[in-house]
Design a protein around this nucleic acid. Structure first.
Lengths: 179, 179
DNA sequence: CTCCTTAACGCAACATGTTTGCTTTAAGCG
DNA sequence: CGCTTAAAGCAAACATGTTGCGTTAAGGAG
């Protein structure tokens, strides 16, 4: 029997909130399960039983924070929509907080489902931009092409080459995939 | 004073070997610092002092295993060289062992230097292929273009979308960057 | 509304992993 | 050959992770 509501839900929310608070206060490195549990008003064994370890818990919280809050803005044309979205995406993801969340999401993710979720969030945003272009009658690349040529290079550089990431790079990637 | 040789070197080699052996025997999940230390004939405190924690140690070992063993083969033309190298790269990296090493390398890497090293290995291989093309007088894309359009999509999919990775995809990426 | 069933939590004892002060060894240099 | 000191060993203190068992309360049946 699955129990998505009631006490279980309160515990989950309380623990997630404790993680967010403690990261903001003391930084991610100072985080331990017993601390989180104490702040959440819960025993450590509860956290260990539900999440397994600190990494999986952080991964959960990270995916939650990486979910886009709003659909991409409408600027009137595909070129402008995609450029603006790419700049925003790079900006959010390459910030220290963004990098940390990406790493956390990848980290505590034995089966890859959390990472898959992150990718799906980006894909949804891209598809929204492309769908709007199609509705306007504009020619547009496939979502796969945008993932391979815009999203992938950005994420690769964030993870493997933390330098040379700026708005100009975002604009160049967007322009190239539309060419 | 840095002491790259002598006892320190023996300890490092012994610990690395212990990690490789234990991963092969019992799997990465069953790995603990005390176990590794015991197998290496070393005390746990030595490992903690040199590497900090298990993740950094695994990251070290992973980078070592991700170093290419040989320069890319010469097939006579840029198209063949790049296609063959891309197929090999995808094959190695997307294998279960390859994925695990990539994750480990990213994981225990506070300052990103290990991840940067992995990227540098790939960049070196790509540059070798392109340099050979230039020596033949062939027109070739920049190394940056190959990193963005071949290496990045492969790594992105390995990390975030573990499906649909096959030799055909590798060939397509290579062909597109040459077009 | 009340009574079951049982998933999820709390508690406490336990096992394991991590840190640290101090001592000992041996690498590299004069 | 002897000094200096980085790095390793040792052992005890400490923190974290694990588990069995009793208790609580969600969600459904009567």
């Amino acid at each position: 029997m699955v129990r998505p509501g009631g006490r279980s839900a309160r515990v989950q929310e309380s623990v997630h909130a404790a993680v967010r608070d403690l990261i903001a206060e003391a930084g991610r490195d100072a985080l331990t399960v017993p601390q989180v549990a104490a702040r959440a008003g819960v025993t450590p064994s509860t956290v260990y039983r539900r999440w397994g370890d600190l990494q999986e818990l952080l991964s959960d919280v990270a995916v939650e924070r990486l979910r886009p809050e709003a659909p991409p803005e409408d600027h009137g044309s595909l070129a402008e929509d995609l450029t603006a979205w790419t700049e925003l995406f790079l900006d959010e993801m390459s910030s220290p907080a963004g990098r940390a969340y990406i790493r956390d999401a990848l980290l505590g993710d034995p089966d890859g489902s959390n990472a898959g979720q992150c990718s799906a969030y980006a894909a949804d945003q891209v598809e929204a931009v492309l769908a709007r272009a199609a509705a306007r009658g504009e020619a547009a690349p496939s979502a796969e092409a945008v993932m391979d040529r815009v999203v992938a290079p950005i994420m690769y550089r964030i993870l493997f080459r933390p330098d040379g990431l700026d708005a100009a790079y975002a604009r160049r990637l967007a322009a190239e995939v539309l060419a």
